[in-house]
């Protein structure tokens, strides 16, 4: 049933954007931002259940929690940068959007360094 609510919010937002975009384009972009925010805050609640499931099974499987935290952080960073980059592209500024995406890729690599070092150490130990 939630999907119906989300679809309705999206359609209403698009209609309002079209009416306002002709003479006040900046309000059109603001309405699309607000519609995106409403839909995502609505869904974040559901996402919490998925994350709890992941944590439960990673504890059960004995995987150390540290890597799961890094993975969750990376998905959070990726999502926020995607959110910003898409808004920039909607407004027609695709160069700023790609800058945001490049910055987020660099941040993700920096955050993922512990995982990369762990994998490389494992490979080196196998080779020796």
């Amino acid at each position: 049933m939630d999907i119906v609510k989300i679809a309705i919010i999206g359609i209403i937002a698009v209609i309002l954007i079209l009416t306002i975009k002709k003479d006040r384009p900046e309000f059109g972009i603001i309405i699309s931002i607000v519609a995106g925010i409403i839909i995502i805050t609505f869904i974040l609640g559901k996402l919490a259940a998925v994350i709890k499931l992941l944590e439960m099974y990673s504890n059960k499987a004995g995987i150390s929690n540290q890597y799961l935290i890094i993975l969750l952080k990376i998905t959070g960073i990726a999502y926020i940068s995607e959110f910003a980059a898409q808004i920039c592209r909607d407004a027609g500024e695709s160069s700023i959007g790609s800058k945001v995406e490049i910055a987020s890729k660099i941040i993700i690599v920096v955050v993922g360094i512990p995982i990369i070092t762990a994998v490389l150490d494992l490979i080196i130990s196998l080779i020796k």
Binding site: I9, A13, L16, T19, I20, F27, I30, I31, V34, I38
Partner: peptide
């Protein structure tokens, strides 16, 4: 939803 309507009304 009323947030969207408020912003549209101001626009």
């Amino acid at each position: 939803i009323d947030l969207i309507f408020r912003i549209a009304a101001i626009g």
